[in-house]
Simulated scan of single mutants.
Amino acid sequence: MMADPTPRPEIWRPHVTVACVVTDAGRYLMVEEEVAGRLVCNQPAGHLEDGETLAAAAVRETLEETGWTVELQHLIGVQQWRSSEHGEAVIRFSFAARAVEHDAGRPLDTGIRRALWMTRDEIAGLGERLRSPLVLTSIDAWLAGQRLPLSSLSWVRGGSRE
């Protein structure tokens, strides 16, 4: 059978990202990072890598950006947003996590200036310095008690191609 020579339209693919809301005594773990020449604040967050589970990506990104090893507790929710930074669609999986151990000597990802703990009011006071509105969206969802079991996510290995 010959291959179909008909050009196919490009398939739309949003950026898939993960983020962690890590809390300790009313403070939240944040990162200060340089993005496109601006100094902004964000939760530990980043892109899902090929072959990686969402949960593993969230733990990895938090360690790489803050030096903190975390234990995921819940899925807070999934947010859909069009980035004002690059104009593309983002699907973000936000997790609640507990800080387990800190490696203060671990080098942080490129662009990350420092990790810091801030209250919700301090975070809200950052205004335009927040990397995205998803930071407060996920904190507020967590504060409102939104918690989904981690078992609501699954990884299906293998399968057939369609």
Rank of each mutant, 00 (worst) to 15 (best):
M1V: 14
D4H: 14
D4S: 10
T6W: 12
R8T: 15
E10C: 12
E10V: 14
E10A: 15
I11H: 13
I11F: 15
I11C: 11
H15S: 08
H15E: 04
V16S: 02
T17W: 06
D24A: 12
D24H: 14
D24Q: 15
A25G: 07
R27P: 08
R27I: 07
M30R: 06
M30K: 05
V31H: 09
E33H: 08
E34C: 02
V35K: 14
G37K: 14
Q43D: 00
G46W: 11
G46V: 05
H47M: 05
H47G: 01
D50I: 12
E52V: 03
A56K: 11
A56D: 03
A57D: 00
A58W: 03
A58K: 00
E64T: 00
G67K: 12
W68P: 00
W68I: 01
V70N: 00
V70C: 00
L72V: 09
V78C: 01
Q79V: 15
S83Y: 11
E85P: 05
H86I: 09
H86D: 15
G87K: 06
E88L: 10
A89P: 02
A89Y: 10
V90R: 01
R92H: 06
F95Q: 00
A99Q: 01
G105I: 09
D109K: 13
T110A: 15
G111K: 05
G111E: 04
I112M: 10
R113F: 08
A115V: 07
A115K: 11
A115C: 09
W117C: 02
W117R: 04
M118W: 12
R120N: 10
I123C: 04
I123H: 04
A124K: 09
G125R: 10
G125S: 12
G125T: 06
R129S: 06
S132T: 05
S138D: 02
I139Y: 11
I139Q: 03
D140R: 15
A141N: 13
S152P: 08
S152M: 08
L153R: 02
W155K: 02
V156C: 07
G158Q: 10
G158P: 09
